[in-house]
Design a protein around this nucleic acid. Sequence first.
DNA 1: TTTTCCGTCATACGAAAGTATGATTTTACC
DNA 2: GGTAAAATCATACTTTCGTATGACGGAAAA
Lengths: 149, 149
Amino acid sequence: MVKKILLYGAVLGVLTLILKYIEYKIFVKDHLMELYLGLLAVFFTVVGIWAGLKLTRKKEVVIVKEVPVIIDRENFVLNENLLKQLSISKREYEVLELIAGGLSNQEIADKLFVSQNTIKTHSSRLFEKLDVSRRTQAVEKAKSLGLIP
Amino acid sequence: MVKKILLYGAVLGVLTLILKYIEYKIFVKDHLMELYLGLLAVFFTVVGIWAGLKLTRKKEVVIVKEVPVIIDRENFVLNENLLKQLSISKREYEVLELIAGGLSNQEIADKLFVSQNTIKTHSSRLFEKLDVSRRTQAVEKAKSLGLIP
DNA sequence: TTTTCCGTCATACGAAAGTATGATTTTACC
DNA sequence: GGTAAAATCATACTTTCGTATGACGGAAAA
């Protein structure tokens, strides 16, 4: 910025010298004075505009951001109260989440490092507590109850 | 914009007249000519800068647009295009909806007045088209694709 | 008109899911 | 330290689900 101002000052100085020279050349010709002044005004106006643009160019960076924000399933908050009310344990809830994720019993077992039988037991108890008999129903009900997103 | 240019021109005209007047006043005093020209240059430079800023100020506005795409269950709109793209038939889509509703194949068959085998065929083809192998996965995928609420 | 797609149904088999029952081990709480 | 709830696992059995394959009639498109 300081550099630019100095540069601009130097340019102005040089220009002033040039104009001074021209002035002496045409000074006697009185009728040219108007033209001279007009050119002077126009010239410095243009220079001013150029300077103005130069000084503000950095601020002209226009950022048009179109950020597609996908807000899904409403801002979900789990109702822990309901979980306790239904006496659904943490492990059972974990299984519920994975069931809702479309995983098979075997996949859930692998993920939780337990046997498939354990998962069957958990899911069975879970279904009982949710009063359903199949995993797809469990997912539906859990969603409607706000237990899962 | 045209208005502004006209205004600017008018201002220049008035200023020229004023300067003309001043010119006659101090013309005889030769040593004031330099000062006069200097002031003239500075003045028009300032005017130029001001004009430059005025013309470009609007471009300096930084526009950050965030377009939220809200996908929720309430205002659901089905993407029929995607259905055609996946070549999912109407009947298959019906079955998909009922599967998502937690119904068993037998229940779906009863509801649609067809045999369970028919439902199995439909669901099998559906899974193939959705590139899944279980009904729970189908529901998950269909939801993420916006095929069902 | 012929072909292609859709919807229907069947049989058979294998895979996954779900139920019932019982047992052992953690964990948490009084 | 004892007790209750939670977590784990197993075995056996039934039900549901999913796949493969083939078939048939109707409707729409070529």
